[in-house]
Design a protein around this nucleic acid. Structure first.
Lengths: 243, 243
DNA sequence: CTAGATAGTGTATGATTTACACTATTCTAG
DNA sequence: CTAGAATAGTGTAAATCATACACTATCTAG
């Protein structure tokens, strides 16, 4: 519309029907080696009792991304994390109350029980493993979630996203495990070692971590070029999707 | 928000301030081997006289994509083309009249002077080569356009988009030429033949076209599975970007 | 010292990509 | 009619890359 026939004089916003605009944030984390998503339980109509992706109306004085970050912080207490716009969902009947347009975001947080506001026992806000989601999510949130996961998977393959889920120092097999979690399949150990080393993204440290078996060497993600998120490590070339 | 404390009884949409929601459509075509974009000239405040991406308010009874298709048809008379959501722009001050959230789409049309409603001489709707855009687009449309172009370039490499730019019947070497234009490099003829045939996206016709040398066989893009946009033909595997 | 557990390396095989040479069919000039 | 320019299309050897899986290494527990 923005080019339409309005003038300062004739323009009257109120004569247009307006949909509501919300921001929903699909928040991922890794808990005990499994990919989890944060959901909240609705207390009222519609979809009372159903789990839903956290979200809220945008304020008139904040940008969409600000709204998403505010939402993320309200739910988890975490700020300054990886966040990215996913897609805007706007089908007509998605909310029975009124026309709602939802701008969906993906966020990734590093799980840290101390810092995260979400407690294990909370009744209405909870982390769910992506492999065991509750049924009957509210609204079209199943669709949003499915899309978020597929996008996460494809993004994983050409960004450095997986490193967001790891602490500063980690072993190569831990990294492999994250890839397996997100891609939902087993990867070959030897091939993973070879590829990740060839990619040159990792910096060897001289620290080791002991465990039950042979101790493992710890590595660090190279961050030499300031703020360079554009490092690419692609595990496989064959994708279907990509947003 | 969608999980917030509303009930059927207490819910009152009108007490929320609501932004306007528009759909903007960046329409691309190939004219004489060069990529062009459709822009419209604004006749009124704000940004009177500036060129802008065509767009309009959504109706309350249509989905976002329906709104985008309607907008495309209003501007060009063309339907059923490749269309895809690009990004949602929602910064606070982007429209001086009121808060406006714009869901931007990319559309690709096959240039056909006969069918397209846009005439060469039209004063307020015009095709511009992407290499020679007017200055000072309205609103934040320069940003939207820049993003659309970069997305288009990267999408061309892993979608079926290039086919949208060709007429119904085309030769394999014409298709190769489009890939070369976009990728900015020469491709190997034999390898291109092999890959495109293996991909199984093309349907052989028994028509030939004569020229200076050996006549060439014409092919058609398979559209057998209704609305299947998910065909993928990737010329190369090495991606950089992706939305 | 041995078994269990985890870490890490090496490599044969097959698939895919690349580069390039070859064949095919038309037209035009003489 | 023939040669050769021009364009279309095929075939293939060699290099590169991916996959699967066997092997070696180093720790702890008993």
């Amino acid at each position: 519309m923005e080019h339409q026939e309005e003038t300062a004089a004739t323009y009257d916003a109120s004569r247009y029907d307006r949909p509501s605009v919300t921001v929903d944030v699909v928040i991922f984390t890794l808990i005990e080696r499994e990919l989890h998503v944060l959901l909240v339980q609705r207390r009222h109509w519609p979809y009372e009792g159903c789990w839903a992706i956290p979200g809220g109306f945008i304020n008139m004085d904040e940008s969409l991304e600000q709204a998403a970050r505010r939402e993320l912080e309200e739910e988890t207490g975490v700020r300054d994390l990886y966040i990215e716009q996913l897609f805007t969902f706007g089908d007509v009947g998605r909310d029975p109350r009124t026309r709602v347009i939802s701008v969906a975001y993906i966020a990734i947080v590093r799980f840290d029980a101390q810092k995260l506001r979400v407690s294990e026992e909370s009744h209405d806000v909870r982390w769910f493993p992506v492999s065991a989601m509750p049924r009957n999510l509210a609204f079209d949130h199943e669709q949003i979630l499915a899309y978020a996961i597929s996008r996460l998977r494809s993004k994983l393959e050409y960004t450095t996203l997986a490193f967001q889920l790891l602490p500063e120092l980690f072993s190569i097999l831990e990294l492999k495990h994250i890839y397996e979690q997100i891609l939902g399949e087993k990867l070959d150990k030897g091939n993973f070692y070879r590829k990740i080393k060839e990619a040159g993204l990792l910096e060897e440290t001289n620290q080791m971590r002991e465990g039950r078996g042979r101790p493992t060497r710890l590595w660090r993600f190279k961050r030499d070029r300031a703020g360079d998120k554009q490092f690419v490590f692609r595990w496989r070339e064959d994708r279907g999707d990509r947003a």
